[in-house]
Design a protein around this nucleic acid. Structure first.
Length: 470
RNA sequence: GAGGUUGUAGCUCAGUUGGUUAGAGCAUCAGAUUGUGGUUCUGAGGGUCGCGGGUUCGACCCCCGUCAUCCUCCCCA
């Protein structure tokens, strides 16, 4: 009598929830297609070696590994070896191809890079693809964090043009506009972060600096300064960082201030130039232009404290957060430029840039904001009541005609009590109930009851089809 | 890896300082009503109170352990 359950961090989706999620998928798909991206799907599992080492130390630990099967066929000697390896795995963070050589995908970017390398002769560069599939992480679940969740990614590989960055910003902008979610799009460059760590005289501490700075929103400058200290950043370094963080104003003003501070850093100037060009391209393409009165008020903001976790980014990085004051949710999307992603798999010199939508969080946010359109509940339009006997046969004939006319319809499969059938139709929210009884059958008609208004009228099948067709 | 929350019927939850046979709403089934639902009334079934141990004359309640859950930190979408 044990109650059934599902694994931690996973969810069932009810019919209504699936419809809401599909609304998001459909919206994104249409935008991706509009911008010329092509669909791609990759397997749920990858070879473990494809994934390890790509997401940093923390990321590696969160990869779901798949136990090898077919082990019972092993010879005794191999089984003994297996036992040894198994104990190793249990005792520490260790993996062995004897025990596990596959893993569930952790994101869509690395499998995409793997795909590009494997199919480099088949694809025309630059290659633009979108991908909407679930990913898995062995994280501790909590609000807005799941072990199985969906990502929708759009990436371009084989082009270093910043037009790509600008287009991806447009995609973010247009998507969240269509989804009715107010957002702030933060933008930064890893090159600025690299320059900043040079400025501090500690290039090797770039990761420490960026991780600490990324918490600015949460713990404030004092908290960040403390963390920087703990991470071994010098007083002078902290002062340099404070100087940069204190820069405010419009994007243009920030870029001017940064170029003043970083004028002697080639990498810093490069980052500034990238951001400036990206924003210039964006202004030409801006899908929200017609909604704006001036160019001043933009939700795309340069944010020097933006870091992004994945360590393969090298250039422009972006992150999307919901800007509604009542919504407390981490980032709902992110992405950036990775100069040498495919290099990890042996294909040098192919630069890529991409963005990702975190569907599950977007769905949670839209739920909270009641941002879904009302009319998503379209399902069965008409239900035929089952009166049994000859009337049942008659009902099936009507049902077939309705479906031929492309009207979503169903019959109550059992000749149950009338009120039970009516209650069922009511609970399902079906718009029309059709009553094919003795009288109707003899006249070759059917009584049509509108379940919203309660009105009922007997009419021919042809008239019924006309009524239900819109 | 660290800290906290919760666990009682299929679901959502009450349950007094620790006291006899653990309750409600919804859902299910049956009936008032074999052609009229969303909104009526009546009745029925359904619980090893997460699991294990302890304290006690007596435990859903107190203590210890354990498992599950959700949340916070870390990290991330």
């Amino acid at each position: 009598m044990s109650k059934p359950s599902i694994p931690q961090g996973t969810r069932d989706f009810s019919p209504a929830e699936v419809r809401r999620r599909q609304f998001i998928f459909n919206t994104l798909r249409s935008i991706f297609e509009l911008y010329g991206f092509q669909p791609l799907e990759t397997p749920s599992m990858e070879n473990l070696v494809t994934l390890t080492g790509k997401y940093g130390e923390e990321g590696d630990r969160l990869i779901f590994k798949i136990l090898n099967n077919g082990l019972h066929e092993k010879k005794d000697a191999e089984r003994e070896k297996l036992n040894g390896e198994w104990n190793n795995i249990l005792s520490r963070s260790y993996s062995s191809p004897v025990v596990t050589e596959r893993a569930l995908r952790y994101d869509l970017t690395i499998p995409f890079a793997r795909y590009v390398v494997m199919h480099q002769n088949d694809i025309a560069l630059p290659f633009r693809r979108y991908q909407m599939q679930p990913v898995w992480r062995a994280d501790r679940p909590q609000k807005g964090r799941y072990r199985e969740f969906w990502q929708c990614d759009a990436d371009v590989v084989g082009s270093t043009s910043l037009i790509n960055e600008a287009e991806l910003l447009c995609i973010y902008q247009q998507a969240f506009q269509k989804l009715n979610v107010p957002v702030t799009i933060k933008i930064n460059s890893r090159k600025l972060l690299a320059a900043l760590s040079e400025l501090c005289g500690m290039s090797e501490k770039m990761m420490d600096i960026t991780i600490a700075m990324d918490k600015l929103d949460k713990i404030g400058w004092v908290g960040v300064a403390n963390e920087l200290k703990e991470r071994g950043i010098s007083e002078d370094g902290i002062w340099q960082i404070e100087r940069v963080i204190n820069v405010t104003g419009t994007n243009e003003e920030k870029l001017v201030a940064f170029s003043d501070i970083m004028q002697h850093s080639p990498s810093g100037m490069e980052g500034i130039n990238e951001l400036s060009k990206t924003l210039a391209f964006y202004n030409e393409l801006d899908p929200t232009a017609s909604f704006k009165t001036t160019g001043q008020d933009t939700n795309i903001q340069i944010d020097i404290s933006l870091a992004r976790g994945l360590n393969y980014y090298t250039g422009v990085i972006v992150e999307v957060v919901c800007s509604h004051p009542d919504v407390k949710m981490g980032s709902i999307g992110g992405g950036g430029r990775y100069d040498d992603l495919t290099g990890l798999f042996g294909l040098k010199g192919v630069s890529g840039v991409g963005v990702s939508f975190g569907i599950d969080r977007i769905c949670d946010v839209m739920e909270e904001l009641k941002a879904f359109p009302e009319q998503l509940a379209e399902g069965t339009k008409a239900m035929l009541v089952n009166f049994g006997g000859e009337n049942e046969t008659y009902a099936l004939q009507i049902l077939q005609q309705l479906r031929t006319a492309n009207i979503p319809a169903e019959i109550y499969p059992d000749a149950s009590k009338f009120d039970k059938q009516m209650k069922y139709a009511n609970r399902r929210g079906i718009a029309y109930v059709l009553l094919p009884g003795d009288e109707e059958r003899q006249k070759n008609m059917v009584s049509v009851k509108n379940f919203v208004t309660g009105e009922q009228k007997m009419m021919s099948i042809a008239e019924t089809i006309v009524l239900l067709s819109h």
